[in-house]
Amino acid sequence: MTGMVALYIFMLAAFTGYEVISRVPVILHTPLMSGSNFVHGIVLVGAMVALGSAHTTLEKVIGFIGVLLAAGNAVGGYVVTERMLEMFKSSGSRQTGARSGGKRAH
């Protein structure tokens, strides 16, 4: 990937992020923040590559910490977001879901 292509990717991705979020109702701000928190858990991939190519013990230890943290970001982000979004229901599904804490899937 050349520098300019990378720059184009950066620019387009930045606009994409802005556009995707720009018309979001306030009720979804917290789930969306949690969701985007999950998405940057992709750092796991980079941490795995960094650890996978580590040679010295120092590199391995730092890489290990990196993968551990990244896995926490990805898994935790997913679990919390999923729990939040699971709760959103419309009036149509009120009777069955009212007091169950929202365990029912759509």
Binding site: M1, A6, I9, F10, A13, A14, F15, T16, G17, Y18, V20, I21, S22, H29, L32, M33, S36, N37, V39, H40, I42, V43, V45, G46, V49, A50
Partner: peptide, 24 residues
């Protein structure tokens, strides 16, 4: 860091979250 590792998935996901998060 995606740029450093030449990893398109990290570049795109990270940047999307960076701009979406700024707006949020």
């Amino acid at each position: 860091e995606g740029f450093v590792l030449n990893n398109a998935a990290m570049i795109i996901a990270g940047t999307v979250v960076g701009s979406a998060g700024t707006l949020l």
